[in-house]
């Protein structure tokens, strides 16, 4: 069974859910699915489907890079860590010094998302720096 067939349910679901710029490519026995999801719920659903086809993602034959489209108009983000404070760093990377912290649940200003993993943010206290985008949720 080809990889396209194995993950057909996933690519079909992505198409049906309105994932834009969808690209499905196979290279060196790995399938690459890239695209932009219209919402976080769509992304979660695709990952659930992926998990059902390849439980615990152990096959190593798929790289799914489907990110959620964050509108340019979004200026406020909520800190959605498990429970802890979120480090704000001088530059994009955990090797960078911490210049501030944002509390769990705090709503802060999104300055720039030019780096996909590290967003430039500013707290109400005026602390500005990079925070890990994984823990930031755009406010509608």
């Amino acid at each position: 069974m080809s990889l396209q067939d194995k993950y057909k349910q996933l690519t079909d679901a992505a198409t049906a859910a309105g994932v834009s710029n969808l690209q499905v490519r196979e290279q060196d026995n790995v399938l690459y699915i890239d695209g932009t999801a219209p919402s976080g719920a769509v992304k979660d659903e695709l990952w659930n489907t992926y998990d059902s086809i390849d439980p615990n993602f152990t096959s190593g034959d798929l790289v799914m890079n489907v990110n959620v489209d964050v509108a340019a108009s979004v200026t406020k983000v909520k800190v959605t860590t498990e429970s802890s404070n979120l480090n704000i760093r001088k530059g994009p990377g955990t090797d960078q010094p911490i210049v501030g912290k944002a509390a769990h649940g705090e709503i802060i200003t999104l300055v720039s998302q030019s780096n996909a993993q590290w967003w430039l943010v500013r707290t109400d206290d005026g602390e500005e720096g990079y925070a890990y985008a994984q823990y930031l949720t755009p406010e509608a």
Partner: peptide, 13 residues
């Protein structure tokens, strides 16, 4: 999802 968005060749889990 985070690891697979970093443009790896593959993720050997």
């Amino acid at each position: 999802p985070v690891l697979q968005s970093l443009k790896p060749k593959k993720v050997d889990n």
